[in-house]
Design a protein around this nucleic acid. Structure first.
Lengths: 238, 238
DNA sequence: TAGTGGTCTAGACCACACT
DNA sequence: GTGTGGTCTAGACCACTAT
């Protein structure tokens, strides 16, 4: 707050402080837009800009014809930042491509891509290293497109949604993730240089186009001690 | 789109369609605010309202003095909706309180609450049922406050952030979650009516006040086959 | 009917980015 | 300097909620 902030921000910040300190409680109505305009000596459109900030932050809820009311931050809504695909601390992974091949048979994942039985599907298999320890196995499935070559550099380093964005002609607009738990197979244990039947986190991502066509599927099998996910409630920022 | 939508929304929706269809590509500059005003016959403030929608949705990024540029939705940022604490399908859990007691010793979780060694900490232990199957064990730790009685009904049914909101005098403003993997202890296996050493998902939540004081800690141990987490990229909505 | 937020205007001046 | 977005005004009319 050291720089000169715009009036709509000061207004929003003041109300935020009142909410966080408990001066304004859940369900309380904040002053009307006209009143706030008088209080701060600003026009109503400027007040509304501040109100919009608070609404975006999830701190208030405005009801047409009634007013704006305090609503405590939604702590049940949490955000995962998966780009820095969080290892146990916050460090980046090193990718190593294991294989890149066509899958012709009706693989369970390939089927989910909604393709005709004879469509070609690419399977990319990578190992993710953290501190030179193999920490996760990732399998990426995507439709094969002629004239969309896969560059090795991208294969090695790019995260899943980026790979899809580069190598499919539809624009990816949605990512659905499922986090579950399983045990390591013998082959997976070998790759992760650990014992089989160890517990693992399984992270499955499906990327969709605007028409809800699945463009790609990723399945990550993550070592128990070398991987964890972090999430944080994202609302309440100002 | 069947009802008459305001002009700023039509503008935003048109641009959204152009992005999703690929007509506007990543990095492209959209028309200037003045141009958009002329194109739609609306004033600049109204244009800016539409631009704000697109920015909120994460579809564009505006740079002062330069313009607004297309930015594909951040598929690496995903939202978990934890209030309907997603079981393997989407159903609600039934809570059963196992115990509610004071913890006096320096328990590892109690320590994290940043209390003096002789402060009292409440430990609530619950079992979460899904389809009459025990699916998760939850342990909630929170500071004991005189004059803030814990109502049994709330203990049984409320999700963690709600319990904190009711029973602490500071306003909870942030929730940090860590998702990891472990194996069941003998006692946990008993409670979940399954074999020990089975893999489990461990979900730890820490609720903070505005001063970053931890108000409560929750640790959920979730049965492999009866629990999974779902997350979805939240941007790109309009 | 009175009070509230929702939409919109037609300007203004400013700060920042380029060239 | 020109072009861009950022802030702000002083109004207007509308739609919805309450009484």
């Amino acid at each position: 707050m050291r720089k000169l902030m715009p009036m709509y921000y000061r207004l929003a910040y003041d109300i935020k402080l009142d909410i966080e300190s408990g001066k304004l409680k859940e369900g309380d109505m904040i002053p009307t837009e006209e009143q706030l305009g008088e209080m701060y000596g600003i026009s109503r459109m400027t007040v509304r800009q501040g109100i919009a900030l608070l609404t975006e932050a999830g701190l208030i809820e405005t009801l047409k014809g009634k007013g704006s009311f305090v609503r405590l931050p939604k702590l049940n809504q949490l955000v995962i930042n998966f780009h820095n695909a969080s290892s146990t601390d916050g460090e980046q992974f090193r990718y190593k491509l294991l294989s890149a091949k066509m899958v012709y048979d009706n693989h369970s994942y390939a089927q989910q891509l909604g393709l005709a039985p004879d469509d070609k599907v690419i399977l990319l298999r990578s190992l993710l290293y953290k501190d030179d320890l193999p920490s996760a196995i990732e399998e990426k499935y995507m439709r094969y497109l002629r004239g969309k070559p896969l560059l090795e550099t991208q294969l090695e380093y790019a995260a899943f949604p980026e790979v899809i964005a580069k190598h499919q002609d539809s624009v990816p607009v949605r990512n659905e993730m499922v986090i579950s738990v399983d045990v390591l197979s013998l082959e997976q244990a070998n790759l992760l240089e650990t014992e089989p039947f160890q517990p693992v986190m399984v992270i499955t991502q499906v990327i969709y186009s605007k028409d809800d066509v699945p463009l790609g599927i990723s399945r990550m099998v993550c070592h128990k001690d070398r991987f964890q996910l972090n999430a944080t409630s994202y609302l309440g920022r100002l």
